[in-house]
Amino acid sequence: MSFVLEVRDLVVNYGKVEALRGLSLTVGDGETVSLLGNNGAGKSTTVDAISGVVRVTSGTITAFGKDVTNAKPWDLVEMGIIHVPEGRRIFSRLTVHENLQIGGYAVTDSSAINQRIKQVYSLLPRLAERRAQQGGTLSGGEQQMLAIGRAMVAGPKLLMLDEPSMGLAPLMVAQIMDVVRDIREQGTSVLLIEQNARSALRVATRGYVIDSGVVTIEASAEQLRSDPRVVEAYLGK
């Protein structure tokens, strides 16, 4: 399988704190890979490093065959590496529609942007209803939908979702995962960061468990679901 993303021996330091200590992972073309782990395990740091928001101390990141270690975030977006950040980070004082337009900032073809915004509205009709409302007036689940919709307007080839289910009711989580499934079915590769291992492993094809900045388990989603260590730590009895 060809990789869209290959992370090798990644080390990231925050001052004297080692957030990542030689983490390696891959995402294959069309794959949905889940990254599981507790708070502070280094999940968000991993995606932040991939999207160029934090500096990598050592190790390499290769995307679509190109070395993108410490590349500029806007160059990565242009390559189709799109990161939906933890906590959604939608623009609360821009309208829903403007948020989606901002998602297409790096896209130069404005008819492509409009086409994709239309697609987002048909996939997520709630957003269409609220297109003129300010982002900050949406509910948590709608804001997450908006954050994902905004990423879709960028035309992702690799979509990285950081804890999309955080703080949402179970029904909303299921809806978000449906959307992730839709995105995957369009051929987009997905890196899904989750604490909610149960729903993540339902969508993912493969997964990694990380702890203290390194990968501790790598297996198919099916194997992870039955791995006693995963069951005990992340799925509950």
């Binding site: 999207s51 806007w74 990161h83 901002i102």
Partner: peptide, 23 residues
């Protein structure tokens, strides 16, 4: 305009703007 939207977005959340591909 696109630039104007980017200005307003940066005034709210510059880090998120990086993830939108805004220089």
């Amino acid at each position: 305009t696109r630039s104007g939207r980017a200005m307003r977005a940066i005034s709210q959340d510059p880090k998120a703007c990086l993830l939108m591909g805004i220089n």
